[in-house]
């Protein structure tokens, strides 16, 4: 069943009376429970696409539907994870992770209790009284994931979530993400500029080109989700295919 449907989407930014076309004629479709990836060079409008889906940026033209319904504003069942700045430095890990619930108006005690359980599930309970500045990059993104999951979203939007991490931490977090995806059946749309990440995670990979950003190819990648995929021949073949599509 189709969960997100985007058709002929245009987004234009106005900067100093200049119009910059960020995204032009984008079409994409993500099924419920699917792990989709958008890959493209930096500045191709990938992030803009996510912001539109998160309801943070308005589209110039085109349509965005969530399970047949048009998007209005920030949806309650959509969570967004950003590369940096996701967490507020003046709040502890627990307060940060509970922020979404607090904003929804859930009483403090219940929100903190729920969040504490979630942090325990993710194995980062011992960090709960620390501040983001005291965490490593990987720990910060774990907390950002916890904050998103606390809202029990149906759709998880991720904007280059692992790109500032070292290779080992990145791979661990990719495994964790796959595990969360398989356990919860959540729909994920992840934006990246890493070919390996796209192939390892994305069942469906959308290739974007630069200025104006538009989708130039779709790669079906049925092996994604297999934790041993990284060592297999098909993995390298798909990577090579994707690389040629990006050039």
């Amino acid at each position: 069943m189709t969960y997100i449907r985007v058709s002929s989407l245009d987004v234009t930014y106005r900067q100093n009376h200049m119009e910059v076309e960020a995204v032009k004629n984008v079409n994409l479709q993500v099924d419920s429970g699917e792990f989709a990836v958008v890959i493209g060079p930096s500045g191709c409008g990938k992030s803009t696409l996510l912001y539109v889906l998160a309801g943070l940026v308005k589209a110039e033209a085109g349509e965005v539907f969530f399970s047949q319904e048009p998007i209005v504003s920030c949806k309650r069942d959509t969570a967004l994870i950003l590369q940096d700045y996701g967490l507020l430095p003046w709040k502890t890990v627990l307060e940060n992770a509970a922020l979404g619930l607090r904003i929804r108006g859930i009483p403090k005690g219940i929100a903190l209790e729920k969040t504490r359980n979630l942090l325990r599930d993710l194995g980062i309970e011992e960090l709960s009284t620390r501040y983001p500045l005291q965490l490593s990059g990987g720990q910060r993104q774990r907390v950002a994931i916890a904050r998103a999951l606390a809202m029990a979203p149906r759709l998880l939007l991720m904007d280059e979530p692992f790109s500032s991490l070292d290779a080992l931490t990145r791979e661990t977090l990719q495994m964790n993400l796959l595990d969360i995806w398989q356990r919860t059946g959540i729909t994920i749309l992840l934006v990246t500029h890493s070919i390996e990440e796209a192939v390892f995670l994305g069942q469906k990979i959308y290739v974007m080109s630069r200025s104006p950003g538009t989708i130039t190819a779709v790669v079906e990648n049925s092996h994604a989700g297999d934790v041993t995929y990284r060592g297999k021949r098909e993995f390298y073949d798909t990577c090579a295919n994707l690389r040629s599509l990006l050039q």
Binding site: T78, L82, Y85
Partner: peptide
Amino acid sequence: GYIMSVKSLGA
């Protein structure tokens, strides 16, 4: 970035 991130939580 902080504003975007908190807005995305429905703030």
